[in-house]
Design a protein around this nucleic acid. Structure first.
Lengths: 227, 227
DNA sequence: CTGGTACGTTACCGACCGGTAACATCGTTG
DNA sequence: CAACGATGTTACCGGTCGGTAACGTACCAG
């Protein structure tokens, strides 16, 4: 629904490389909306407040967005886009080393959690406040979470874990636990500092003993056998 | 739905005319409110809907509750009360064995997560939709989370962990991660099934190597040297 | 019967919210 | 200049929400 097919006439062809003055108002409003949604929740911010905070007004808002729902959808998409950019950037620091990649991910999460503007995971928080009938949004959030899970599975698999799905799931629990607790605990006081050591311990427990055949039976039985 | 437990009129005679059966309507309304708040979020349910769903009306609601805010506060307190009752019941199954207690906690969480009425942690979800200005509620949630953390620290300490705070924090991340993901993933499909094995592995990693051959031959030594 | 208690019903209020109409303003561009 | 598009301003609509007033009624106790 992101189709912004408004008047793509010759005007943007004329202006060439420079962005066709797309609409600075729209961007300002959208940025403001993202901040407010993240800080106060989607249901806690009205379009009037958004427009006013952006130095504009409601009418200009509705010239750029079809409805508040459309804005919310775009907000979630943008949050996901930024999230993957953040993710890819952390992972790209250790190409070919999935274990270090996972560690870098949690390091980066910890760094962000030390920001006072951090209020956990935007998509996850949205899931907590959208009701079941808001189908489009919950579908979007679910797809996002499933993608997180698949990526963690993939990294666990790439590092040669005995049970990559189980390890990936455990990593996801730690990740989301960090986001969730960050919502409540002020700045550096939460339990999120325990995430990285736990990640390392879990990976160790799932990796076969170094440079040796995995014939050693008992090493990860507690985790591999499960319940 | 029904919940017509009207046979309690026995206690009327004992108490004076002023505090007999607490008013059955109030209880019905409160129960309904708890269900609706949990399912659709606090901001997603109005008092009119609550009263109607309870087979009553708004006026009767306001005869029992001072305001919606008062109801919400009471809702959160009740959720916390029920949560600790659940916690204590799981822990009480293994007196004097903190490790088994923690495992029982995660087992019980997993069982609840298999209920389709489960939508994660009520207090935590409330935190996700409460804006910063609603001070009383966020204070309540924060106190609850801190209590969870202290208890996990205590259990980690009781089981002789090398770094009980770190272990307790890691357990809390897994716990809250389970709640958070349960919000998004349908019934049995989420990563929460990986919690218990991860808990066992983390505890193993934090416990000093076992000298005696205990009942269960675990392999903690592989991860004991990690980190 | 009388009175009080608990509850239901209707109507209403003010505030806010999502959304729209009509018009004014300003800068750019031809 | 004139025309146009993008934006600001005001007013308004219908609906919902939290909350209240007034009144009717069933039941229980003395």
């Amino acid at each position: 629904m992101s189709g912004d097919k408004t008047g793509i006439s010759r005007s943007d062809v004329d202006l060439g490389p420079c962005a066709p003055t797309k609409s600075r108002v729209r961007d300002r409003i959208f940025e403001t909306a993202c901040e407010l949604f993240y800080r106060h929740g989607i249901h806690g911010v009205g379009v009037d407040e958004i427009a006013a905070e952006a130095g504009s007004n409601k009418m200009s808002f509705y010239r750029s967005f079809a409805s508040k729902d459309a804005l919310v959808t775009e907000y979630l998409r943008e949050q996901e886009r930024e999230y993957w950019a953040w993710w890819d950037e952390a992972v790209a620091r250790h190409p070919g080393d999935p274990r270090r990649q996972v560690e870098a991910l949690f390091e980066a999460q910890f760094e962000i959690a030390l920001t006072n503007s951090c209020r956990g995971c935007a998509l996850g928080n949205a899931a907590a406040e959208i009701s079941d009938d808001e189908d489009e949004l919950s579908t979007l959030v679910r797809a996002y979470k499933e993608k997180v899970r698949r990526r963690l599975h993939g990294m666990a698999s790439a590092m040669g874990a005995r049970d990559p799905e189980r390890l990936g799931d455990a990593l996801m629990l730690l990740l989301d636990g960090g986001y969730f607790t960050r919502l409540v605990f002020p700045l550096g006081s939460g339990p999120i500092s325990a995430a990285l050591p736990a990640v390392r311990a879990l990976i160790d427990a799932h990796l076969p003993p170094r440079r040796s055949a995995d014939a050693l039976p008992d090493a990860a039985q507690t985790v591999a056998a499960g319940k």
